[in-house]
Design a protein around this nucleic acid. Structure first.
Length: 296
DNA sequence: AAGTCCGCCAACCGCATTGTT
DNA sequence: TAACAATGCGGTTGGCGGACT
């Protein structure tokens, strides 16, 4: 019996499906449920894992009294119920990291997820398919094509870096303003009011903290990584190629690898892409104008 | 208001790999 | 070391909800 045969044999033994979202565990003659998990099932699984730990998913499912396959329990726990699962929108930093790591490793979702604490491979895969592949589709090019990879690398990723930096700067400004106000308040409350004197940012640079180091857990964790992608983008934008990136991070004329014949289509497609992307916080009007200049 | 479309994402499936007996 | 079981991984599907007509 070769590998495939015995795997299929395992699967046949494990479950036999009917047409009604029910499966039968032949060994235990038990109806198995599939589809969405109920709150009761979630509690049952969580309580059982809290008491007995995870692993041995098939026997866990049986001993917990869950009419689910071990696989289903494992997936539910790892992708949803685990306490350290990070929920909510993918941040700019995470987007950048996903793009970078995917450019290195391709569809190695699990490997990529290891570098995004709290994110699951499923979540990253979904992000890629729904957001990134959508843009490839809009550009009418293959997601693996050089054209699309260049678009990601020379447009999307630098733009994300700029957004991250801008966000970090604005956070610093808010923190600085708060610090200044607190200082002033403190001085006033101590009856040490100094007429006509205001505190500048320079005066208080020593008491401010950067958003990246104190507020942004991803940034902190990334900085601990052995292969530090995010920091590389922060510091070495020249990595994109000196001929491509201007000091502001913008792309030099002619950097895009579009053939002349494709320019009109690409311009139209990219403009539409950028318009659509406003909802994803990746592009703005400035980007659109810039790109149109590049394509003209 | 009702019907349709579409994007998102949880969950499933098949296969590969790893662990255990 | 072969057989089997458990786990991991990536592709795909289907249901839900919001947007649109």
């Amino acid at each position: 019996m070769d590998h495939h045969q015995h795997v299929n044999f395992n699967l046949r033994r494990e479950i036999i499906s009917d047409n009604n979202n029910h499966k039968v565990d032949e060994d235990n003659n038990m109806d198995l449920k599939s589809g969405s998990w109920t709150v009761e099932e979630d509690f049952t699984l969580m309580n059982h894992i809290a008491l007995h730990g995870e692993g041995r998913w098939n026997s866990l499912a049986r001993s917990a009294g869950l009419k689910r396959t071990g696989k289903s329990c494992r997936l539910r726990w790892l992708n949803y119920l685990r306490p350290d699962v990070r929920r909510g929108n993918i941040t700019l930093e995470e987007q950048l990291l996903i793009l970078e790591l995917h450019s290195r490793w391709g569809n190695r979702w699990s490997k990529i997820a290891q570098h995004l604490p709290g994110r699951t491979d499923n979540e990253i895969k979904n992000y890629w398919r729904t957001r990134v592949q959508k843009h490839a589709k809009q550009l009418k090019c293959d997601v693996n094509s050089k054209q699309f990879k260049d678009t990601l690398r020379y447009l999307w990723m630098p733009r994300l870096v700029e957004r991250i930096q801008a966000s970090s700067n604005s956070n610093n400004e808010v923190i600085n303003q708060q610090s200044i106000q607190q200082k002033n308040d403190k001085i006033i409350s101590n009856n040490n009011i100094i007429p006509n004197m205001s505190f500048t940012q320079e005066n208080y640079s020593s008491i401010t903290t950067t958003a990246a180091s104190s507020e942004n857990s991803i940034g902190t964790q990334i900085s601990d990584m052995s292969d530090n992608c995010y920091t590389n983008y922060h510091i070495n934008q020249g990595d994109y190629g000196e001929s491509l990136i201007s000091p502001t991070g913008y792309i030099q004329h002619g950097a895009l690898d579009f053939s002349t014949a494709d320019i009109d289509d690409n311009q139209q497609n990219m403009s539409q892409l950028l318009l659509d992307d406003v909802s994803d916080n990746l592009w703005n009007i400035e980007d659109m104008l810039f790109l149109q200049q590049q394509l003209n």
